[in-house]
Design a protein around this nucleic acid. Structure first.
Lengths: 343, 343
DNA sequence: TTGTACGCGTTATCAG
DNA sequence: CTGATAACGCGTACAA
């Protein structure tokens, strides 16, 4: 590696001790202003930069935290990571970022990698396969705090940052009801995810509140990917079982459904209205523009990072951690895809 | 931070020296197989993990490299980063990731941050404002190799990983010509970027080859964002200066143009055909699906990372580096947005 | 085959 | 106010 100047070099150049140099550089009170000045000038001259590795070894801290997200394909998680970085850079922490690719095996491998790197804390949005409670608990009990965000572990005792999925699903469904769509159904996400259950419950309760009947056909287990939305919609079309409106688990599923509609020359929202979730940039660009729930991604990242930093501090001070679930405010953006033109 | 077992602890437990433990763990030949076995068992028992910080200090290597990208909003750069990680994880390197937000000032700040963290090498896709040649050269001359990818510095002497923007722009334009569109124009990117010049040149040369006239209206400086494509298209509509086909600098610009067309009830491709660049997932989902040039993002990341690793090795061995520009194969995906129905 | 001792760059403690 | 020294965890030359 490139040769960097050290405090030793400065000490040698000025014929003083490394201790004094260290203190001068740290701007401490117990050092003669004139030598302090000399040291700083010499440091400048030699283009001295403190070696972060040495500092970390000395402080017995790696100043590193790990982030696991399911994927990178949409801009959703990257935006959250932006928020995380915004806080962590400030705090002098490095970030290890990895994606589980929706697989629990990958997630496990990544978590082990993080342990090997001695991360001081971990931020997780879990994979769609399984809620790996045992592993999370093991890590937390070993003294490495975990904060979950967006896709949180249902039962692990830890802090979590989410939006109120139930409420937003409720609102989205009510929005369709207020628009007087008759047959409203829900394309649900992967069963293992807590957000799937919450959005499903929100849908059900909104339907019940307005005395809509829920049949076995009202909720269709679909998944998370565009293709899954596409095939689910296609199946309904083939069965001539077309609803008036669909509240979809997320935007990609809604896009997939939309594609299937177009392929069969069925118009949206005239024949089938659509609502998505977790607004992506795309929502505004498809035709018709998609109604969706916008999540505060950047803020979610910031919040999770801040909570984790707190917990790391508390852990270092051997204090107890209070687990909290923070619910951020989301927003239903109504667009053309869910407006009933007949009313 | 959490208390980890060290080789000292193992040594103490077995009443041997740390040196022996160190050697045993490194699986070296000059240590008694039986003690080696003992050490490994004890290490297992104490859940020993080598402290990466200590190793790095000892090896005088930070095993860290930095990546700067302009943005995170589309999935383009995240996918490249995935490829980078794929290589670097394997090689035991950590990644510092940052986004310049298209601003040269930010980029400079990030590069300084990387220097402070003593990265061993840097991967850069430059911002749209300015090609900061002086800074890049300063860093490279100081002994930190830089490899550029996708958006490369025009004149900095360094290795670069790109696609053949000229050729693909040429192909895209020819495709429009072969489809017998009459009035074909180009929405160009930010003037400071090399890829802007290359794509522009590809457009021009394809037009010339087929004896199409290039007027002052044939190329419109547009930019990089969806909004810019939107307003450029809107202006043409207001001026009643609508072309038959537009080769756009990238997908977002094409989406913006498409949006403007729809707002004026102008159909695509019937009245105006569109071609994008740097295919995004969205390209397949908009209506009509957008013709675009797909770039091998993952491979681009892998390639750039591999080249950087090589250069880091060469630097460490005090050997000379040969700068190479690697051109990866891209692909024009023809979709409905650029098919002339009249032929 | 194993142990001693030192160095990596930094900070903290304790003398002076 | 300043200097000498130990320590952080690991690797390695050298000695035994």
């Amino acid at each position: 590696m490139k040769k960097y100047a050290t405090i030793k070099d400065i000490a040698k150049a000025l014929n003083i001790s490394v201790a004094t140099v260290s203190r001068a550089l740290a701007d401490r009170w117990d050092v003669n202003p004139s030598t302090k000045k000399l040291v700083k000038e010499e440091a400048e001259r030699q283009n001295y930069k403190p070696n972060p590795i040495a500092t970390r070894l000395q402080n017995k801290r790696t100043k590193t935290i790990g982030v696991v997200v399911p994927e990178f394909k949409s801009s959703f998680f990257p935006n959250i990571i932006l928020g995380i970085q915004n806080i962590l850079d400030e705090a002098g922490f490095q970030l290890l970022i990895a994606q589980s690719n929706e697989s629990m095996a990958n997630e496990e491998k990544i978590l082990k990698l993080f342990e090997g790197n001695m991360v001081e804390g971990i931020l997780v949005s879990i994979n769609q396969e399984q809620d790996n409670i045992n592993l999370y608990n093991k890590i937390i009990n070993s003294g490495i705090p975990i904060v979950f965000f967006n896709r949180v572990s249902a039962t692990t005792l830890a802090s979590k940052v989410v939006i109120d999925n139930y409420k937003m699903a409720f609102f989205a469904t009510e929005h369709l009801i207020y628009n007087k769509f008759e047959k409203i159904i829900h394309f649900a996400g992967p069963a293992s995810l807590k957000i799937t259950q919450e959005r499903k419950k929100g849908f059900e309760d909104a339907m019940k509140k307005h005395h809509r009947v829920l049949t076995s056909n009202s909720i269709i287990d679909t998944g998370i990917m565009s293709e899954q939305g596409h095939s689910a919609m296609k199946k309904l079309i083939e069965e001539s079982n077309i609803p008036d409106a669909i509240f979809c688990f997320n935007d990609p599923v809604a896009f997939g459904a939309l594609k299937a509609l177009k392929e069969s020359n069925i118009t949206c929202p005239d024949t089938v209205a659509l609502v998505g979730f977790s607004e992506t940039e795309m929502a505004q660009l498809v035709e018709p523009p998609l109604t969706s729930v916008e999540q505060p991604t950047f803020k979610m990242g910031e919040t999770a990072a801040n909570i984790l930093l707190e917990q790391i501090e508390l852990t270092n001070e051997q204090q107890n951690i209070n687990f909290e679930t923070t619910s951020l405010t989301a927003h239903l953006h109504v667009r053309k895809s869910s407006i009933n033109k007949k009313i």
